[in-house]
Design a protein around this nucleic acid. Structure first.
Lengths: 173, 173
DNA sequence: TTATCATGGATAATTTTTATCCGCAATAAG
DNA sequence: CTTATTGCGGATAAAAATTATCCATGATAA
């Protein structure tokens, strides 16, 4: 049982994007640089997050990514499922009905108990992930991490985030 | 995140071995046949269970496998760890310190909060697996499964299990 | 018009998983 | 003692998944 390394990248990127101001964005290249990752491959994962509506993307120069909703409403489960897929880790191959003694299909309508037990454990896993909000991750980082890393991280965001053009305003505000 | 299919095979085999009498055994070939699996590959997984002291193996004709301890003291976690390895699914690559802004190593002594959150969820998963005893799996199967499958399974065990030679007895009992 | 950026497809490199084979040691049975 | 069966371990191969790169495209800010 292994998670792809894209999960780590995706969570770190989402946490970094939680630090950008307002509707500013950060380019995939900037994040790849921040974490020493392959830019072209990281884009794949960021794209998965965009497809899952966890991130929003803005094309064009000064474009990039930002969170699609507040960090309080993004969980680690959202990110893990977006990157790893929604299928359970345990895939029941129904080997119970593959032997030479296989019976009529009607004998297997009740679900396999082994599958049920494995899925139950997986539900516990997902529940725990769903309880971990991105905002918690960020808050813990700000509070507990070494101040130097916090400062460096904030400085990077400050330097590389890009304000977006304000949608045309009818100046009657 | 995916579990190898060896896990399914291993659990089914363990559950079947829970049904053999006393210290009788069942050969790997018999179990491969029961579940329609490749015998040579199944042996690898059974061997992992033996190494983990979940099963005992007996060489020679009439040899095979049996549980190394009562099914009440074997959990799904035991089996999953034996087959999949003990490393956590989430492997922290410490990408937080891989960027161009990397600081002195002393800035990273505190563990990565993302890693901590992921491992916490994994602990919940393992706890749930540890609560699932092999004896429960077997009992649920006996009680809830289609009677035809229960009968077929018991018949197979009855037919293919092999009694072991009794260790030489000093007849003073 | 130009340069930057995300997107999607195609493709390749690498690693992991799955599977097979063979020689070996153990051992029950003839 | 011989033979046949079984698990064990290593070597190896086949298949699949993961990781990574590249390029053409469309969007858009400057």
């Amino acid at each position: 049982m292994k998670l792809g390394e894209g999960v780590e990248a995706a969570i770190h990127c989402a946490a970094m994007l939680a630090g950008v101001d307002g509707n500013s964005t950060m380019s995939g290249a900037a994040m790849a640089e921040a974490f020493g990752l392959s830019p072209s491959y990281l884009l794949k994962h960021l794209n998965q997050l965009t497809t899952a509506r966890i991130l929003e993307s803005v094309p064009g120069p000064a474009g990039g990514y930002r969170l699609a909703r507040p960090a309080e409403r993004i969980t680690l489960l959202d990110i893990v499922l977006a990157v790893e897929g929604r299928e359970p880790a345990f895939r029941c191959g129904e080997i119970r009905q593959r032997g030479p003694t296989k019976l009529d299909a009607s004998a297997y309508v009740k679900p396999c108990g082994i599958n049920a037990a494995m899925l139950k454990a997986e539900r516990a896993y997902r529940t725990a992930l769903a309880e971990a909000k991105l905002s918690d991750i960020v808050a813990d980082f700000m509070n507990d991490a070494d101040p130097r890393t916090v400062a460096a991280s904030c400085a990077f965001v400050e330097r590389r985030q890009r304000p977006q053009k304000v949608p045309v305003q009818s100046s009657k505000a």
